[in-house]
Write a protein that binds this DNA or RNA. Sequence first.
DNA 1: CATCAGTGGTTGACGCATCACCTAAGCATG
DNA 2: CATGCTTAGGTGATGCGTCAACCACTGATG
Lengths: 172, 172
Amino acid sequence: MSAPNTAVADVAAWEAYQRMRVLLSAQIGRELAKCSNLSEAEFDILSVLADAKDGTLRALSLRCGLDWEKSRLSHQIGRMEKRGLLRRQAYAGDGRSTLICLTDFGRETFAEGKATHERVVSEYFTKVLTAADLAALTRMAGKIVARLEQVDARPHHANDLHPVDDLEDEPA
Amino acid sequence: MSAPNTAVADVAAWEAYQRMRVLLSAQIGRELAKCSNLSEAEFDILSVLADAKDGTLRALSLRCGLDWEKSRLSHQIGRMEKRGLLRRQAYAGDGRSTLICLTDFGRETFAEGKATHERVVSEYFTKVLTAADLAALTRMAGKIVARLEQVDARPHHANDLHPVDDLEDEPA
DNA sequence: CATCAGTGGTTGACGCATCACCTAAGCATG
DNA sequence: CATGCTTAGGTGATGCGTCAACCACTGATG
């Protein structure tokens, strides 16, 4: 035992974090599914889309907003299109691109989901922690994310997502 | 704006936490897969199993140790059995039960995986945070888990997992 | 204009997670 | 012993996520 009980605390912290992560995700997933018939992935997509002008974004922009892989988005969009939450539409400005448009049904569903989501996050996260806790957690998360991004940005394989030009002007 | 900027801090904390969670999981998953050819789920199973006497547990005990649903475990065990990491074996003491046994290959693979896992957790989590951070995080996670369990344990649907009698004695 | 590299998106296969349902063994109780 | 509940585990369908491969279109270069 050259390293003292710091190691013990490290492991405890990791395990506590893991347990929180798993249970919290599961709870949010369950309530979102039960109360609003949405998965977390669907909710995330609708969130980004609902913030966009006309509820419409190019798939690329959506991907950058979410930090998703392109095939993941494509599959997800396919399923959501089948459910009528959104629809694909050709983009006149660039024949390779696809526009994703929120439908009315999608917008309604998102409104419900948002309410559920806010309730659950508040009930199991925000209200359980103090303001100081939240500040501390924000700071810690920032450090860890910075560390991860610092590694991720390096040599690697040209991460597929750099240029982010949105459709601000050229409508269709 | 009746509620002041606490709401802003709340949202920021949630988003920071989310981002950390997603990136950290992804990183661990990637490195575990790349360096040791294991998924997180496989690693978790092997961890519990490797701690058990003879690397053997009844499926029920494994499930309680992991907090998994039985069908999830069954599917996972099936895939891992196909890969040769473990094997199923009838349990003489109770015809309904199944023993899960680590194979030699499983034990080797776990050893590698454990090294990778420890390296990654240390690199992106433990070493990025201070001892005070870790203590604070442990405390926060404890509060949130307690809140979740307090809800989860209630009326509900008799959660499928209460009695936890292990095989301490009756070997086979 | 022909070629060709890079980009935006899709597809198929596979592993993973959950749900609903099923089987079979144990364990009552009559 | 027959009936019926509970418990341990498994199955199949479906959604989700990743990887690798695959177009189609764009834009640069000759």
